[in-house]
Amino acid sequence: MAVNKNALIRYKTIDQCLRNTLKKWTLNDLLVACSDALYEFEGKHSDVSKRTLQLDLQLMRSDKLGYNAPIEVYERKYYRYADPDYSITKLPLKKDDVHLIKEAVAVLKQFKDFSLFSDIQGMIHRIEGSVLGAEDAGKTIIHFDKNEHLKGLAHINTCYQAIKEERVLTIVYQSFKASEAYSRILHPQFLKEYNNRWFLFALEKHRLITLALDRIQEIQLCTSEPYRDAALDPDRYFKNVVGATVHNRRPIRIQFKADAKMSPYIATKPFHSTQRLLHTDETGSIFNIFVIPNFELERLFLGYANHLEILKPERFRQRIAEQLKQAAALYS
Rank of each mutant, 00 (worst) to 15 (best):
Q326I: 10
Q54P: 00
M262Q: 11
S285C: 07
K192T: 09
R19N: 12
K146Y: 10
H155L: 06
T52L: 05
Q161C: 02
N28F: 06
R317M: 09
S87P: 08
R19M: 15
V168E: 04
V291C: 10
K64Y: 03
P188Y: 09
D233C: 14
V3D: 00
S183P: 05
K77A: 13
D113E: 12
L186Y: 06
A104N: 05
L57K: 03
S130L: 07
T89D: 06
N4H: 14
L300G: 05
A258W: 05
F256R: 06
L22E: 15
K192E: 01
E296N: 06
E166W: 00
F316E: 01
P226C: 06
G129W: 04
L203T: 04
A212Q: 07
F114W: 11
L91F: 04
Y194H: 14
L27V: 13
I209W: 01
I286W: 07
K12R: 11
N4V: 01
L53W: 12
A260I: 12
N288A: 02
Y11H: 09
I310S: 05
K64Q: 12
K261S: 08
I9V: 15
M1R: 01
A7Y: 06
R299H: 09
Q323W: 02
H307N: 13
E314A: 12
A162S: 14
G303R: 08
C17R: 12
A328R: 03
V172Q: 05
E166K: 15
V98I: 15
E40H: 14
V242L: 15
N306K: 13
G152D: 07
R197V: 13
I141V: 11
A178G: 01
G152Y: 03
S332A: 14
S130C: 07
Y227A: 01
E225I: 10
D214F: 08
S130N: 15
S332Q: 10
A181K: 11
D56T: 03
T280W: 08
K177N: 14
A2D: 03
E193S: 13
E166P: 00
K95M: 04
H99A: 13
P264F: 02
R315C: 03
L57E: 06
R299Y: 00
N288I: 02
D47W: 09
K151D: 11
M123H: 13
S87F: 02
L100E: 04
